[in-house]
Structure formats: C-alpha cells, structure tokens
Simulated assay, not measured.
Amino acid sequence: MTSDPYLPPDDIVRLRDTAVEQGLADPSLRRLLFEGILPKYRGSLPLLAAPGPQVQSDLNEMNRVERLVDGTVPLAVWLRNASDQLTDAAARDVFLKALDEVVRDSAGEPDVAPDVPTGETKEEIVFRDDTVPFGFLSGGALAGASVARVKVLPYEGGALLQPVALPHNGTGWLIAPDLLVTNHHVVNARKRTAGERQVAAPADLQLQARGSRSRFDYEDGSADDDAAAEEAHASGLVAWDEELDYAVLRLTGAPSRPCLRVATEPLTVVSDTPVAVNIIQHPGGEPKRIALRNNLAFDADERDLRYFTDTRGGSSGSPVLTDAWTVVALHRGTRRVSDVSFQGKSTAFVNVGTQLSAIMEHLREHSPQVHTEIAAAQSELARRARPQEV
C-alpha cells in the first residue's frame, strides 16, 4: 500500500551510504536483508546492476509502502535485518534510529518524552540474590495464557480504508473475564505522517474495535499453530484515553482463561536500585515472546514507568509484570537514547509504560461501570488466591 514516506530523503541517503560502507550492498546479502518480507513483494522490486543504486532503489521503494497484506512493514523488517548484520556500533545505530522512527510511525505510536538524564550510569547488579522461586516459571506460563496478539483493520467514513485496508498488529491481555486491554494507538490503527498522529473518528474507532481479532495461545510460527490458536472477536470499545494510551475492548464471550492481576498502587523505583520487570508480547505480530529479568525498571512517577528491555512494533499494549506476575504498567512506546550506560552498553532502549494505577484511576473517574467490573474481577482473583480456611 503506497503512502507518505516514512523517512526523509537525507535519511535514505545516509542509510544507503552506511550500507555500502559496511558491505551490506553485496548482492549475495540482498536475500538475507529481505528475510521475513513476502517473496512476492521482493520479486516486484526493480533490479539494478550496481550494488549501491540497488540498495538506494530498494530503500526508496520500501519507504513508500505503509505495510503489506500480512501487516508487516517491509522497511522495518529490512532495517532490523540490516542492523543484525553489523558489529560496528556507530553504523548499527544509524539503522536502529531509522528503525525506531519507522516502527513508531507505522504504529501511530504517540511521542514519549525521552526525559532520561544524560550520562546516567547503571552498574552491573552482582551483589544481590537474583534468583526467583521455581514457581516463577509456572506463574509466567499462566500469565502468558491471558496475552493475545491483536490485529486491527483501519476504517474511514464507516468503510474499510481504501484502496486496501491492511492490518495493524499489537498485543492485548485480559483484565477481566471478557475485557481486553491494549493501547489506544493499536485500536486507532493509523500511522503517523510527518510526525503528526492521525486519529480515527469515534464511529470508525468502534468499527475497528469490533473488527479486531485477538489470538490467544499463538506461541510458535507454524501455520497449523496460527490456524488453531483461539481467536476472540470484540463487540466494541468500552473505555479509552489517548493521553494515557489505553483501550478496553469487550470480547464476545469470555475466553476460557484467567485474567491478569493488576497493581492498585504505582510501582516506585528507588534511585540506583532498579526493579526487574517482565514483558509478555507479540513483537511484530509474531508468536508470543517474553523478556525476562534483566529488563529493569529504573525510573517511575505517578503516570509513567520507564525501563530497559527488548520490544518491537507489535509489542504495544503488552503487560509489564513484576516477578509476582502482577501487571504494573501497559507498555506503550520505545525510544533509543544516547549517552545512557546500562550494564556496560553505551546506548540502550528506554521503554515507557503507563502505570496501571493511573489507568484504573482514570477508569474510576470516567468509566465507573467498567472500573467496577474490573475491580470485581480483581477481587475474585484475590479471593481465589487466598488459602482456603479449614
């Protein structure tokens, strides 16, 4: 689907020059750089004799395509593949910065203020017991059953977006038996253009929610697994907020799986004592993955939680969980920052999630019925978790 370019011409030239300097223009690597992109699309691209112009042509073509019929963004996949081939930190950073921009724009992700102190240093954590109870593993498996890949088709004016409505990927999870939480920008299903967010009209937003498909138990890449995974439909969007970037969808029929526990108070982080968090996600709409243990929350306030971890487009809407598998934040965005050292690395991803306590407070004020329903489900979870009296 042709759309406004993701990157300006100067960025494309910088990527081409870096690719040539690092040997990525070698024709033998072209197939590797297109790994994960539909072969039919790759076969439609012009073929040139000279390596440098070929890379330039490929980048220009992909830069004009919003996404393919399977929901993938070809430029994002190509940039990720290219960065994986590089060991030079400066060159790799050129591709990763471009990748971050493409991923944010393609998802319509709102800006996340990168208010990270420059020069901040985090030491290796080696002087405390970092083991967890063995039950941590079974708890994670149970929590993962409540997490789904979400696909949303864009509507405009009451009809599927023309000329072709292509799916946007995200992650969602159960907060009550038939209520699924994800990001507002996932349900909004619009890319950013020239740095500006496109916002779906309220009626179209509801159509997109009702047309969404959430797959639970999508855990490996086989076609059989994808076809067999449980798919939930939604009857509508019952609560949302653009600023906090959350959306609550009503699923048609309660899925046969538990909901996740949510924190009632904001997670606090003491200076120089990061807290380990865990993120269950569907990066890029791919099978379920989990980021464990070394994903440290290093800063927090009443609304936002900031942490280092590995996420990608499609991870938006993932639950950020403590080691007790309680959701403390709703993952909403990522930034790559410079001049921040994390466990010996000169650069790191800074991720931002909305504190669940802030979302619950917003629901209590603006959607009291939904808040009451969630609170009742959470109370039932707590009751079942208490030891039975003899």
Rank of each mutant, 00 (worst) to 15 (best):
T2G: 12
D10Q: 15
R16D: 01
D17Q: 14
E21P: 00
Q22H: 14
L24R: 00
L24F: 04
A25G: 14
L29H: 05
R30C: 01
L33S: 11
E35F: 06
L38K: 08
Y41V: 07
L45P: 02
L48W: 02
V55Y: 00
Q56T: 09
Q56V: 00
L59D: 03
E66Y: 07
V73A: 04
L75T: 05
W78F: 15
R80G: 02
R80Y: 00
A82K: 05
A82R: 01
A90I: 04
A91W: 07
D93F: 02
L99A: 03
L99F: 04
V102C: 00
E109M: 11
V112D: 13
A113W: 08
A113G: 09
P117R: 14
K122M: 12
E124K: 15
I125N: 10
V126Q: 14
V132D: 07
A141F: 14
L142Y: 03
V147Q: 10
K151E: 14
L153I: 01
G157V: 11
G157E: 12
G158S: 06
L161S: 13
G172M: 13
L174A: 02
I175Y: 06
I175T: 10
D178A: 14
L179Q: 12
L179Y: 12
H184W: 15
H184Q: 12
N188L: 10
G195Y: 04
P202E: 12
A203V: 07
D204Q: 02
Q208C: 01
R213G: 08
R215N: 13
R215V: 02
D217F: 14
D217P: 00
E219T: 11
S222F: 00
A223C: 00
D225S: 07
D226K: 15
D226R: 10
E230K: 02
E231M: 14
A234D: 04
L237T: 04
L237M: 09
E242D: 11
R250G: 01
L251M: 06
T252S: 11
C259H: 15
C259P: 08
T264V: 13
T268Q: 12
N278K: 03
G285R: 03
L305A: 05
G314V: 08
S315K: 01
G317W: 10
W325Y: 12
T326E: 15
G333P: 01
R335Q: 08
R335D: 12
V337H: 01
S346D: 14
G353L: 05
T354E: 08
A358N: 11
H366E: 14
E380F: 03
R386M: 15
R386C: 11
R386N: 08
Q388M: 09
V390E: 10
